[in-house]
Simulated assay, not measured.
Amino acid sequence: MIYFVSGLNSRQIKIDEIKKEYTDISIFDASIESEYDLFLNSIYNVSLFSKRELIILRRAEKVKKMKNLIDTLKEYEDDKKDILIDYFAEYKTKNIYLKDFEKITKNIVNIENEDDLLNDYIDKNLKISNEDKKKLISLIGTDYNHIKNEIYKYNLVLKDEVFSFAKLDGLISESLDKKISDIVDNIMFANVDIDKINSSMYMGIVYGLYKEFEILHRLSKLKLSTDYNTFKKEYEKYKDIFLLHYYVAYLKNKNINRYTTKNIFKILLNIVKNETMFKSGEIDDKLMIFNIVSYINKNKKS
């Protein structure tokens, strides 16, 4: 049996469910060439286990010759070994090998929208209201491993009790992605004290700013309506360009009047310039952040 588990980060939920069916599991990382070779050797070696063994290839998107791997799996037959190919693909259009795997196995799990999957996981592991669940996700983010660790921590305190923010005061840890996202929003549309930003977040903030201004640049070029219903209809034509839920794009479009199209483009160039200067050793990371934030403030409408 061959599993092809692909899609967003929350696919790990499905992988964990599959792993529960096995006691003998071997895991290899495709991003490490020597481990990929070990994976290939492992699927051809005679199994020493009496029970079915699961062999997992993590980060399969790093395999340089995926077509060769697919051809190998087409010929694969072993009653004692099952294979799980773990392939990260953020969007449907990037999951280019899905059809190839459909031809060789029906055991395909493709996660393109993780909202329902994460909601179900939280519901199964916490006694929590929908309102509290939304608030919790807004705090801890949507990274499965972070959610899993957080829930484990909460249940040590809650035991079998209903979830309560009051009972978990001081125990809830915001995800790093959530912290970076909040800082990026404040830089773009409010104010931020650079001295209070942890240096470990600098590069994440730079990448986040570039991504957000890139989206703003596209929106500013399209000049979509700021009226919700009109925007929703107009956005339907361009949703494949943005790969964002229309409501997320609508919220970004509402703030677009804080910048001109010309200034957005200048900010993008400035981010690239400062990142390049940092990577070449001309400036340190704190000066890079200072230069970028100062330039954004200079080109932001009050």
Rank of each mutant, 00 (worst) to 15 (best):
F39K: 11
L40W: 01
L40F: 00
L40H: 01
L40E: 14
L40I: 12
N41T: 02
N41S: 12
N41H: 05
S42K: 12
Y44A: 14
Y44E: 15
Y44V: 08
Y44D: 15
V46I: 12
V46W: 01
V46L: 13
S47M: 04
S47W: 04
S47I: 04
S47E: 08
L48A: 10
L48D: 10
L48I: 14
L48H: 04
F49K: 10
F49M: 10
S50K: 12
K51W: 02
R52M: 02
E53V: 01
E53N: 06
E53R: 09
L54H: 05
L54C: 02
L54T: 06
L54F: 00
L54N: 07
I55G: 03
I55M: 04
I55P: 02
I55H: 06
I56S: 03
I56Y: 00
I56L: 02
L57F: 01
L57K: 04
R58V: 00
R58W: 01
R58F: 00
R58E: 13
R59L: 06
R59V: 00
A60K: 05
A60R: 05
E61M: 02
E61S: 09
K62C: 02
K62I: 02
K62T: 07
V63M: 01
V63A: 07
V63E: 11
K64D: 13
K64Q: 12
K65V: 02
K65R: 14
K65Q: 13
M66S: 07
M66E: 05
K67R: 10
N68E: 15
L69T: 07
L69M: 10
I70V: 13
I70K: 07
D71M: 05
T72W: 03
T72K: 14
L73Y: 02
L73V: 04
K74D: 11
K74N: 14
K74V: 00
E75L: 09
E75V: 01
Y76N: 12
Y76M: 06
Y76Q: 07
Y76H: 08
Y76R: 07
E77M: 03
E77Q: 11
E77I: 04
E77N: 15
D78W: 03
D78A: 08
D79N: 13
D79S: 15
D79Q: 14
D79C: 04
K80Q: 11
K80P: 00
K80M: 09
K81G: 04
D82R: 05
D82L: 05
D82V: 02
D82N: 11
L84K: 03
I85F: 01
I85E: 06
I85R: 09
D86M: 06
D86Q: 08
D86S: 09
D86L: 03
Y87I: 03
F88R: 09
A89M: 04
A89C: 09
E90D: 15
E90Y: 12
Y91L: 08
Y91N: 15
K92P: 01
K92H: 11
T93P: 00
T93C: 08
T93V: 12
K94R: 15
K94T: 15
N95I: 05
I96S: 14
I96N: 14
Y97A: 10
L98T: 06
L98H: 11
K99Q: 13
K99P: 00
F101G: 11
F101A: 10
I104S: 13
I104C: 11
T105E: 12
T105D: 11
T105K: 10
